[in-house]
């Protein structure tokens, strides 16, 4: 008996190889980073000056609304698009797999390549503008790159891919008989969606929405490559990198990061407050 307990206790040593590096490389820096936001570069005295600087200097505090102005509308549109696509192809629709695959495909490429692709496609001489001009919708090329719209489009492509990749499985987990049942009881397609499908998937959709929004608040390479990082797409991370790599002011860089983290938490709190007001549970029937 004693030996049994002994071996069991010793077993927990097996946790160390993974925990130790994480404590050193993740937990310690996280804490140190937090402390650093209360210090001036090269000093250890505790001060609030970084935060005061952030919230009084437009160069810093503008990033909050610039980021949100870019990311929130994009995230909402992404949700509509991704939900629309995955809802449409749910079940056993022919070609559904191909559509899902193509929608999710940009996720494999990652943000840098998508940024380049947006430039190649939407630049003034790219396919988008030449087609629009040839059809006659536009008279002259519409500037869609190196500004707000460039970053917006790149975010949309990646965000739709991310949300769709999560929604496909969630939609499959809802028993299709529930929808059939509602329809036989006399519900139209729309009422079936409103009263049966949506209430069942709502909480999961909001979770994915929140995750995506949080991810996109940390947008960087897109803002730099297809956006205009000097003004319109000057997001949190752009400023943080500027502080860290150009000014070597890690303390300020961290302050920006912390403010970003808090913003993300607030967004999360808002979404989850909305989510709470509905059915949270499993929608798959047995068998």
């Amino acid at each position: 008996m004693n030996q049994e307990v002994f071996t069991r206790k010793r077993d927990y040593l097996l946790l160390l190889p993974s925990l130790l590096p994480l404590l050193l490389l993740f937990v310690y820096p996280l804490l140190k980073g937090f402390v650093m936001t209360f210090q001036e570069p090269g000093s250890t005295a505790v001060t609030l000056s970084n935060y005061i600087e952030f919230f009084t200097n437009a160069k810093y505090y503008d990033t909050i609304w610039r980021t949100l102005y870019l990311v929130v509308p994009a995230a909402i549109l992404e949700l509509f698009l991704a939900f629309g696509i995955t809802y449409f192809i749910r079940g056993k629709m022919k070609g559904g797999g191909l559509i899902a695959g193509l929608t999710i495909f940009p996720l494999t490429l990652g943000s840098i390549i998508i940024d380049m692709a947006v430039i190649a496609f939407f630049k003034p001489t790219g396919w988008f503008n030449t087609t629009m001009i040839n059809i006659g919708i536009l008279d002259e090329p519409f500037t869609l790159v190196y500004n707000y719209w460039g970053a917006f489009i790149a975010l949309i492509i990646l965000g739709v891919a991310f949300i769709a990749s999560n929604l496909v499985g969630m939609m499959d987990s809802i028993d299709p008989n529930l929808e059939k049942a509602a329809r036989t009881l006399g519900a139209s397609h729309w009422v079936t969606f409103k009263r049966v499908f949506w209430p069942l998937i709502r909480s999961n959709v909001l979770t994915v929405f929140a995750l995506n929004l949080i991810m996109q608040i940390g947008v960087y390479s897109t803002a730099v490559i297809v956006g205009n990082p000097a003004s319109e797409t000057r997001t949190f991370v752009v400023v943080a990198f500027e502080e860290a790599m150009r000014n070597f002011n890690y303390n300020m860089a961290n302050t920006v990061a912390i403010v970003m983290g808090v913003t993300q938490l607030l967004v999360l709190a808002i979404v989850f407050a909305i989510r709470k007001r509905g059915f949270v549970g499993s929608a798959s029937t047995f068998k």
């Binding site: 008989n177 059939k180 049942a181 329809r183 036989t184 069942l200 929608a283 029937t285």
Partner: peptide
């Protein structure tokens, strides 16, 4: 349309609305 057929259906897994 199936919603207009006035049919009462009992599914094998019942398909009751969990919410």
């Amino acid at each position: 349309d199936m919603s207009r057929r006035d049919i009462g259906m009992v599914f094998q897994n019942y398909a009751l609305f969990p919410h």
